[in-house]
Nucleic acid binder design. Structure first.
Length: 270
DNA sequence: CGCTGACCCTGACGGC
DNA sequence: TGCCGTCAGGGTCAGC
């Protein structure tokens, strides 16, 4: 589910209900996530005031003066604001209850997400090797060009690699490559500077547009306010294999690249 | 160091 | 109706 636009949508949705609020209790119904939810999280968080909710790549950081809660939504996770009186449903694994009465509820059928506690100033290994934010000035075509020299991996795997750039998942990688007219299997190291610039610009554009639409809801994504995203209607290739290319009318083809479904147009992408 | 594939887990869906 | 295989938006890790 969540790539950068969905995580950002979640951040924007939950932030007003967290910022400046005291955490009254943390209820963990199912600690078996990607890594077990430790007691340290509860010890660290309860009684603290959440100062800010930040995002780094697909990670959310709930900052307090005593440390931070690091959250990843995995593939099927969502975090939304609910009324604390509302009975938890299946796969509602964690509640973060605010003194204000608001409640952040974490739902994750596949349990690939994680909730970790970071001591003040602690640089978690998960965050320390991440590439630049795609929407920042640190990320552009020249950067992609430089980093890709000598690399033999397919450009799609390259831009989905979090050490190269964060937040670009399968949906938006497919979309950006289509818009840039680049074949997903082309070796990253054999793409010109000009084309890398086009690609970087489209990555920024497609992510920005998706954030504006509240993300992409394929089956069950909901943002912090519980509402779905509307970007799915604007997808050019993802989920459209066998249908007509919106640019040339040809049949979109599907393949597998690095265990991920890849959709592209053989005419428009070279 | 770079790259590939197995793996983590549950649910939805299509074919029989 | 049910069983079975396949696939799904994330990332880590071992091995070459």
């Amino acid at each position: 589910m969540p790539e950068l636009p969905e995580v950002e949508t979640t951040r924007r949705g939950v932030s007003p209900h967290c910022r400046g609020e005291i955490v009254q209790d943390l209820v963990v119904r199912e600690p078996r996530l990607r890594w077990p939810v430790s007691g340290q999280l509860r010890e660290g968080l309860v009684g603290r005031t959440i100062e800010t909710v930040e995002r780094r790549g697909k990670y959310l950081l709930f900052r307090t003066s005593a440390g931070s809660m690091l959250v990843h939504l995995g593939m099927s996770g969502s975090l939304r604001v609910v009324d604390r009186a509302q009975a938890p449903g299946k796969h509602d694994h964690i509640d973060i209850q605010m003194a204000s009465g608001a409640c952040l509820r974490y739902h994750d059928p596949r349990r690939f997400g994680c909730f970790l506690w970071l001591a003040p100033g602690e640089q978690h290994p998960l965050l320390s090797h991440l590439g630049p934010e795609p929407l920042s000035d640190d990320f552009d075509g020249d950067y992609l060009y430089r980093l890709s020299r000598g690399r033999s991996s397919a450009v799609k795997s390259f831009i989905m690699n979090g050490k190269v750039v964060v937040g670009v998942g399968n949906i938006y990688a497919n979309e950006a490559l289509f818009l840039a007219g680049i074949h997903p299997r082309r070796a990253a190291g054999r793409i010109s500077r000009t084309r890398h610039r086009v690609l970087a610009d489209y990555i920024k554009q497609v992510l920005t547009s998706a954030i504006e639409q509240g993300g992409t809801t394929l089956r069950d994504f909901v943002g912090g306010d519980g509402k779905p995203g509307y970007f799915a209607q604007q997808l050019y290739v993802y989920g459209r294999a066998g249908e007509a290319c919106k640019r040339c009318g040809g049949l979109l083809r599907e393949g597998r690249l690095g265990q991920r479904t890849t959709v592209f147009c053989v005419t428009c992408q070279r």
